[in-house]
Design a protein around this nucleic acid. Structure first.
Lengths: 201, 201
DNA sequence: GTCTATATTTGGATAGAC
DNA sequence: GTCTATCCAAATATAGAC
């Protein structure tokens, strides 16, 4: 087994993905050229192309890392014990995690835009959203059951319909915060809380 | 007054915008080249550049037309008389209007992606979202007041917080329907209804 | 595996005639 | 105002040496 070699290879890939993420964060996806990533990574064209077939593969790796981290965080928070946080708090957790990991959250919007035309990226996005649903679904069902007092199957039915909407609220946050200079995050979360956090009195 | 000339000029511009929209709808924004639009319009490079400074200006015109039509439709439906439709129905109206006007709704996602990096487009998006809020705000306030029985100022306060969230729900719909092959629109609207349509019994 | 240098393509925009 | 032909820049990916 080429153990050391494998490790080294992973490390290199990480180094490249790091550089790519930094570039995307600062210049945006479209405006980042391979030359930028090459310079930022401190490597060379040959080195990059030895590990990634092109810019799209790189974008894919970046997206997977970011979302993977978010899902990890989400799961940890849910299993942390104590009172189950309300949906608006979970959304806030994810959004602040994103913001701290990528300098400019607008990169995600650009990647989505890429996904519309690039079939390869599009094929990856489906499963990614699927993963997100798989993590959020159980949480939402638990929320409905524990805090809203729904019966288990009613809670699951509710969650099933709410998942895409909850996801949509996150996407809306990202778009607005990326495109509207005077976006008011607190107001947004207040609105989300008004719709989702309410518990029967 | 050069009346006929003005009309002709408008007509030409419309013709070009039509062609651009068709190209964007089919090939996507990034993948559409000026050559494509030129071919599709049946005109020539010189003719296009005589009316639009470049691809970005064209994208802007396309976006403005699409959203303008949507806001018109929204306003008409609200002032139509009869019972005020619930939020989920208004959202459905907007989304189906979009879908029928542009073949592939994903174009919008690409335009948003453009807006992230292109300052000129970004400057236009703010006001556009502002217009949308200006139309949706009064509707939501009316809904809160008439159907949810809130006092006028409470209704306005509620609407103020809900506007961005409602907008976000539309954006989420657009993204998911553009990127997820098995997106279930009915389920999405069911979720929206569960959150927003409820009236006190 | 990695580097340097470069080939090749693509596409936005313009010049000048009509 | 519009057309044809073309220029020029940018950026991806590769070739070949080390």
């Amino acid at each position: 087994m080429p153990k050391v070699t494998e490790q080294h290879r992973e490390k290199r890939r990480d180094q490249i993905v790091d550089a790519a993420l930094r570039c995307f964060s600062v210049k945006g996806f479209q405006r980042t050229s391979m030359a930028d990533i090459i310079a930022e990574s401190g490597l060379s064209a040959g080195a990059i192309y030895g590990h990634f077939a092109g810019k799209q593969q790189l974008a894919l790796a970046v997206a997977q890392r970011i979302l993977g981290n978010r899902m990890l965080e989400f799961g940890e928070r849910v299993h942390e014990g104590g009172e189950l946080p309300p949906p608006s708090a979970m959304l806030r957790l994810m959004m602040s995690g994103l913001t701290s990991e990528i300098h400019d959250i607008g990169v995600l919007v650009q990647l989505w835009g890429e996904g519309v035309t690039d079939p390869e990226m599009s094929h990856m996005i489906g499963p990614i959203f699927g993963d997100v649903s798989a993590v959020m679904g159980p949480y939402l069902a638990r929320w409905a059951s524990e805090r809203r007092g729904l019966a288990p199957d009613a809670a699951e039915a509710w969650a099933r319909d709410i998942i895409p909407v909850f996801l949509g609220l996150g996407q809306g946050y990202i778009i607005q915060s990326a495109l509207l200079p005077d976006f008011d995050a607190d107001r947004y979360f207040r609105g989300v809380a008004a719709l989702l956090d309410a518990v029967p009195t």
